[in-house]
């Protein structure tokens, strides 16, 4: 059923997109740059966006140095005990975003994620035998976020050359954060669909356009609070530099630099922490600095308010606290519709 979700949304969008523009008109949605990111659409009435994210994690870093899974096992395993490290992890996320412009300067966004996480692990037993096993798939509704975006300045309403947008939001604890494996153990904190906490979000976006080239800078600060299970993710600062070229009326090409600085997590009640037996369950092994290079392209669909976008992310710099499995590559595909 899940594979049909994009097609259903696409079909609904076609059915409800009543505006058809003839030759000799400029449909406004074709000219409106995204407020938050290069894929976002500003709707005149309502905007919907659906995104699929596929993240592949396999490499393990020790600080800034790559280490093999067996190397990580041997480094932490102690005779008589056991230790597990992740071998590879696939995190998928389906995100539905709805945008509603309350006024010409204020827009509200609702972001609804659905996550699906899979992980293979290597375990070195007390006898020194290394075994591979797969964690049960964790999937479910994630944490819904609500955002208000305010256009603090723009020099034009549709195709501005300068625009500053400020945002304030709240991440709600709608996703489960107490998922357990079939053996009854708490699933690793980072694999849980939700965090269990109410977290404020602060956002700033500056856009400067030299058409057909558009430059954007984003800053997003996620202030994390303690979840109801006692786990507190580290705060996270995301920053993006985006260059987008309108190569054709209906095609945008782009290149982004996406940076993340995440602070260390804290497990106040110790429910998720097993530092002596699991690399994944060690709050000291959280927090990182990452920079990704992300080429993308966007195709706008003529005579509709729709567009599709594909973005590929590859890391150019990653440094972590302790030992952590990191992102090797990520692909994001989205379709947006303005009604």
């Amino acid at each position: 059923m899940k594979r049909y979700i994009p097609l259903i949304i696409f079909w609904l969008a076609l059915v409800h997109s009543s505006t058809a523009w003839a030759f000799g008109e400029c449909g406004l949605s074709c000219c409106i740059g995204g407020a938050v990111n290069s894929g976002g659409a500003l709707a005149e009435n309502l905007g919907l966006s659906f995104q699929y994210e596929y993240m592949h994690m396999e490499s393990i870093l020790d600080g800034g140095r790559e280490i093999s899974p067996t190397g990580a096992l041997n480094q932490n395993w102690k005779r008589g005990g056991y230790y597990t490290v992740p071998d590879n992890m696939i995190m998928e996320k389906y995100t539905l975003t709805a945008a509603y412009p309350a006024t010409e300067r204020l827009q509200f966004l609702g972001i609804l994620p659905y996550v699906k996480n899979n992980m293979d692990m290597l375990m070195k037993s007390s006898t020194g035998t290394v075994m591979r096993h797969r964690m049960d798939t964790v999937d479910g509704l994630g944490d819904i976020s609500l955002l208000g975006l305010y256009t603090a300045y723009t020099d034009a309403p549709i195709r501005p050359s300068r625009r500053l947008t400020l945002g304030l939001g709240l991440k709600t604890p709608t996703g489960k954060n107490d998922e357990r494996t079939s053996t009854g153990a708490m699933v690793h904190a980072m694999m849980q669909p939700g965090s269990g906490s109410w977290d404020p979000l602060f956002l700033a976006n500056y856009m400067r356009a030299f058409y057909p080239l558009i430059l954007q800078a984003n800053l997003l600060y996620h202030l994390s609070n303690k979840g109801d299970e006692g786990y507190e993710y580290g705060d996270q600062l995301s920053y993006d530099l985006i260059a987008r070229l309108q190569a054709h009326n209906y095609i945008n090409l782009g290149l982004e630099i996406n940076g993340i600085h995440a602070w260390r997590d804290k497990d106040h009640d110790g429910k998720y922490s097993h530092p002596l037996s699991s690399m994944m369950d060690n709050p000291d092994y959280t927090g990182l600095n990452s920079i990704f290079l992300s080429p993308h392209f966007q195709i706008k669909i003529p005579n509709t308010g729709g567009s599709v976008q594909v973005k590929y992310q590859t890391p150019v710099f990653q440094e972590v606290n302790g030992l952590q499995q990191v992102v090797d590559w990520r692909i994001l595909m989205s379709t947006s519709w303005a009604f």
């Binding site: 030759f23 699929y52 596929y54 095609i251 706008k300 003529p302 599709v308 594909v310 692909i331 595909m333």
Partner: peptide, 22 residues
């Protein structure tokens, strides 16, 4: 899912070749 979405994007992008009337 990834394959289905790639096919979906190709299908959606196809109408970019279509233009309107007089």
């Amino acid at each position: 899912t990834l394959r289905a979405l790639i096919l979906f994007i190709i299908a959606v992008a196809a109408p970019t070749l279509v233009e309107g009337g007089p």
